[in-house]
Simulated assay, not measured.
Amino acid sequence: MLVDVLGPRLNVLLCGINPGLMSEATGHHFARPGNRFWPALHLSGFTPRLLAPAEQHLLPSYGLGITNIVPRASAKASELSRDELVEGARALAERVAELRPRVLAILGVSAYRTAFDQRKAVIGPQPEQVGEARVWVLPNPSGLNAHWTVTTIAEEMARLRASLDRPHSG
């Protein structure tokens, strides 16, 4: 099983849908070449340089952590059942209550809609919270999500990053 990347005082807990097979094999989140997570994270300003998946341990020093809704690895997120996503969301809410990040950022709007029963959710900040954490939905960085580019994913991540400097009004 892929281990979460966590630290104290997280600003943002980045939450993938589930690990890909390469991530499971290497022990590194978003490990498949061509996944846009690491380049977008850097372009958004969350990290001062482009990190390799093997450098994921550095994320807590930037106030970031990584987890997944569902721990089971698969070739495609579409292989997950609705029940797995819903159960994963329940377990994620428990982790968020313990970790107390400022923001829970879900990387994938379709998975968020299913897991959290928010059928009308769109990319961006959500009116709902998970525990005390604000929820922000980001595009899925997988190469299978072809209508998003590294640049447009980074722009959404940058919107989230900029929101951290503003007080929450919810």
Results as ranks from 00 to 15, higher is better:
105 A>C: 14
8 P>C: 00
65 G>N: 01
3 V>N: 13
1 M>R: 12
16 G>D: 08
50 L>P: 04
109 V>A: 14
127 P>V: 03
21 L>D: 11
150 V>W: 02
127 P>T: 04
80 L>H: 03
132 E>M: 10
85 L>W: 01
147 H>F: 11
41 L>T: 06
32 R>K: 14
30 F>N: 02
9 R>E: 10
26 T>E: 12
157 M>D: 07
25 A>N: 08
65 G>L: 02
55 E>R: 06
134 R>V: 05
28 H>D: 11
27 G>F: 04
86 V>D: 10
136 W>M: 10
170 G>R: 10
39 P>H: 12
78 S>P: 04
169 S>M: 08
4 D>S: 06
154 A>T: 05
56 Q>M: 10
51 L>I: 01
96 V>A: 07
65 G>T: 01
136 W>R: 13
5 V>A: 06
111 A>E: 03
139 P>K: 11
141 P>T: 09
152 T>W: 00
94 E>R: 12
126 Q>P: 04
43 L>T: 04
23 S>V: 13
108 G>N: 05
3 V>Q: 15
119 R>Q: 14
132 E>L: 12
87 E>N: 13
157 M>Q: 09
27 G>L: 08
79 E>A: 13
154 A>Q: 03
1 M>G: 07
147 H>Q: 09
117 D>C: 13
31 A>P: 08
32 R>P: 00
140 N>R: 06
104 L>V: 10
69 I>S: 06
52 A>R: 11
159 R>Y: 14
135 V>G: 04
110 S>A: 14
107 L>A: 10
158 A>H: 11
161 R>K: 15
154 A>L: 05
8 P>V: 01
7 G>N: 02
51 L>H: 02
88 G>V: 07
10 L>N: 02
69 I>R: 00
118 Q>S: 15
5 V>K: 04
102 R>P: 03
170 G>H: 09
161 R>W: 06
22 M>W: 06
78 S>M: 09
115 A>F: 01
135 V>D: 00
